[in-house]
């Protein structure tokens, strides 16, 4: 029902919202992160942080992250996550909760 109010965002906007979330919720004050920085090195955020990030991405962009999608190839960096969001939205459209 709210689909019309949530047009598919641009990649740069998706990246921006993820970076903003990381800085607001998960990174130490003063730490900045680039779109290509490795999020899975274990040094930037921990496994609980990754779960929170994934929850944010699912809610913010209204996609359902399937277990099969919960892989390094989709979460390595901000740019990679944005690419995954774009693909997921193209496949199902925003707000769709089907598998």
């Amino acid at each position: 029902m709210a689909t019309d109010a949530h047009p598919t965002p641009e990649t740069s906007e998706i990246e921006g919202r993820i970076v903003e979330f990381l800085h607001r919720e998960l990174l130490e004050p003063g730490v900045t992160i680039g779109r290509d920085a490795d999020l899975l090195s274990g040094e930037v955020i921990d496994s609980i942080g990754i779960l929170r990030l994934a929850t944010f991405v699912g809610e913010e962009f209204r996609i359902v992250i399937q277990p099969a999608d919960f892989v390094v190839e989709n979460f390595r960096s901000v740019a990679v996550i944005a690419g995954y969001v774009v693909r997921a939205l193209a496949a199902h459209g925003p707000g769709d909760t089907r598998p």
Partner: peptide
């Protein structure tokens, strides 16, 4: 990286 991503 693998440990953070259960699917991987």
């Amino acid at each position: 990286a693998v440990l953070m991503m259960p699917g991987s």
